[in-house]
């Protein structure tokens, strides 16, 4: 792979995703405080709205990217033995992947 997500590229993605995540969190928390969905139908209507659906899908994509870069940095900083480090990185990668597929299946169900 020629385009590793490391160095400056990872640093930049970490910040770009952070800005999106911050904006999405502000919107969702403000919405949930001001006008929380009263029932299942209302929640489904909110998340299923095309604009919100896309924003939510993008949110989880950026969230998992942000989490991967962040946790990867933490592991690289504190875990020195090569085998343990590789094992933990692999576990986190699988964890992120499963979360992503899970969210995808949930979002597809709302459509």
């Amino acid at each position: 792979m020629s385009r590793h997500l490391s160095g400056f590229r990872a640093w930049m993605w970490q910040r770009a995703s952070a800005v999106y995540l911050a904006g999405f969190f502000i919107y969702v928390l403000a919405y949930l405080i001001a006008a929380p969905p009263v029932d299942h139908q209302a929640l489904k209507g909110w998340v299923g709205n095309p604009g919100m659906w896309l924003a939510t899908a993008l949110f989880f994509l950026f969230l998992l990217l942000h989490a991967w870069i962040g946790v990867r940095d933490v592991i690289l900083d504190y875990i020195k033995p090569a085998g343990l480090r590789l094992g933990m990185l692999a576990a986190v990668f699988v964890f992120v992947l499963i979360c992503g597929l899970w969210v995808l299946s949930i979002l597809m169900g709302v459509l």
Partner: peptide, 25 residues
């Protein structure tokens, strides 16, 4: 950040439950 990362499956599970049907909500 690590704590939020570890909490992800629980948050996703709650979202899935709330979006499943009225009973789950």
């Amino acid at each position: 950040g690590v704590l939020l990362f570890l909490a992800l499956p629980f948050a996703i599970a709650l979202l899935a439950l709330a979006l499943s049907d009225q009973e789950g909500f």
